[in-house]
Structures are given as C-alpha cells and as structure tokens.
Amino acid sequence: MRAIYDVIYEVLTAGPESSPILDNEKSVSFDVVYYSLDTGKIRSVVELEKLRNTESKRHSRDLLSFKRNSRLSFQSLSSEASSVFSEDIIINGLPMVTISVSGHALSLSKAIADVLRAHDSILELHIGKTHIRGTDMSHISAALVENYSVRVLDLRLNNIGNEGAAHLVKALTSNKTLRQLNLFSTGIDADGVNCLADALRTNVGLEDLD
C-alpha cells in the first residue's frame, strides 16, 4: 500500500497538458481479501469477519439446543461445527490486496511496473482514468509478463491507443494468470483490436475482455 502511495505522490505526474480532473474525482482505495486458487472466489476480510460472527452465533445456539436434547457430548459437536467453518475460504485462501486508483496522473508508469514486480500479493489493479498513455503500457506489460498474481487489470478511460494495445499483446501471449481485462474507452481502434485478437489465440487464461 505504501508503494502505491509513493507512486501517486512522488512520481512525476502528467503535468498541465493533461485534461484537468476535479479533486472529488480523485480516489485511492485498498481492500484486503482472501482468494481461493481452487474456486477463483474472493472474500474480503470484512465479509469474513461478518461470516465468522454469524457462524459463531449460530453454532452457539445449535450447541445449546444440542446439549439440552441429546446425550452426545458438547465437545463432539463443537469439533464438528469447527470443521464446517474450517472449510471456508479463509482456511484455503491466500491473503491478497485489491488496489483502485482513479483521477491521479500515473504517467511514467515504470513505478507501477516496479510495484507489480516487487509484490506478488496484488490480486486486482484498477487504474482507470489515470492519464496512462501508450508508452506507459510498455512498462506495465513487461511487468505482467513476470507477474503471477494479478487476476484483474482495469485500464478504462486511459488513452493508451494502438501503441498500448501492441504492448499488451506481449503480455497476453505470456501471462497465464490474468482473468479480466477492461479496455473500455482507451482509444484502441480496429487495428489495435486485430492485434489483441491475435494474442488471444494463444492466451489460455483471459476470461473477460471489455
């Protein structure tokens, strides 16, 4: 998280030639989640805490009723209840982080690439409307070739154009873990789409392309 803040506040921004963005459009958010490699499902820590509390209360009521109406031991049911909850994603999942940045100019995105290379705990990277250009995608795409954690990449509302698409092709032909890619309103025309289509002939991981 600190690395992302360093990117935002210490890396040179796009400067006055970029289209202005109102302060209320700028946002940075993080969410710590647990991700299941087996199912591909995600649950946030907050959701898991709510689930834990709900399960705990339900099992407490069940155990109390069980003690009153059965000769079986309290301990046996307690172990059974525990094993039910142990099947939750928090047991089998990996702790990851999702990152969402909007409105901040992230030009010179070599810094973003450095973050992707340095941290293998980033599950989702949403960097829409951050003034990323086609040349910036050379750094990000190169990092995606080496990255094995990012499942979602959101680049919407960045004018990366066909140059950016060409760089993404290199990532898509090598990366096997990216599942969702959002290229909505990124200035890619028919030529860029053709390049991406060629890359998708060999890509075996991507499931959702906007």
Rank of each mutant, 00 (worst) to 15 (best):
N175I: 02
K57D: 10
K50P: 09
K176R: 06
Y9M: 07
Q180R: 12
N175W: 09
E80K: 06
H59R: 14
L106D: 03
E55R: 13
E55I: 13
I132H: 01
D62F: 11
L94T: 09
D38R: 07
I132M: 02
V84G: 03
L64F: 15
T186Y: 12
L157S: 11
T177Y: 14
E10C: 10
F66R: 06
D23H: 09
L94N: 02
S149Q: 08
C195H: 10
G164K: 01
L77M: 11
S18T: 08
E55C: 14
K110V: 15
L181W: 09
V84N: 05
V115E: 04
R52W: 13
G93P: 08
D38I: 05
I160Q: 04
S174T: 06
R61M: 13
S185Q: 15
F184V: 15
E25M: 12
A105R: 04
S107I: 14
V7L: 08
A14M: 08
V7M: 09
G187C: 08
A142F: 08
S29F: 01
G205T: 04
A81N: 15
A166V: 02
A171Q: 02
A165L: 03
A3I: 06
S100D: 05
S82F: 11
V32S: 12
E124Q: 07
S109N: 13
K26A: 03
L37S: 08
E87M: 15
S76P: 14
S138M: 08
E163K: 12
K57H: 04
G103V: 00
L64P: 09
S79A: 13
S83G: 04
T173W: 03
T54Q: 09
V115S: 06
S174P: 00
F85M: 11
L157D: 14
K57P: 00
S109M: 10
I132E: 01
S60N: 10
L125W: 00
K170C: 04
A81T: 15
N158T: 10
D88N: 11
L144Y: 06
I112Q: 07
R71A: 12
G103A: 03
I112P: 14
L123A: 03
R61F: 12
L181P: 03
A197G: 13
N203D: 10
R151I: 04
L51M: 14
V28S: 01
D88T: 11
S82A: 11
T54L: 12
I21Y: 00
S86V: 08
S83N: 10
R156P: 00
D6E: 15
D38A: 10
L37Y: 06
I140A: 00
V150N: 01
T135E: 11
S149C: 04
T173F: 03
F66V: 05
D198N: 14
E146M: 13
G40W: 05
E146C: 08
F85T: 02
C195S: 08
R151L: 08
L153R: 00
R2S: 10
V11E: 02
I4S: 01
L125I: 05
L48R: 04
S79M: 13
R133T: 15
G40I: 03
V32K: 12
S149P: 01
L183K: 04
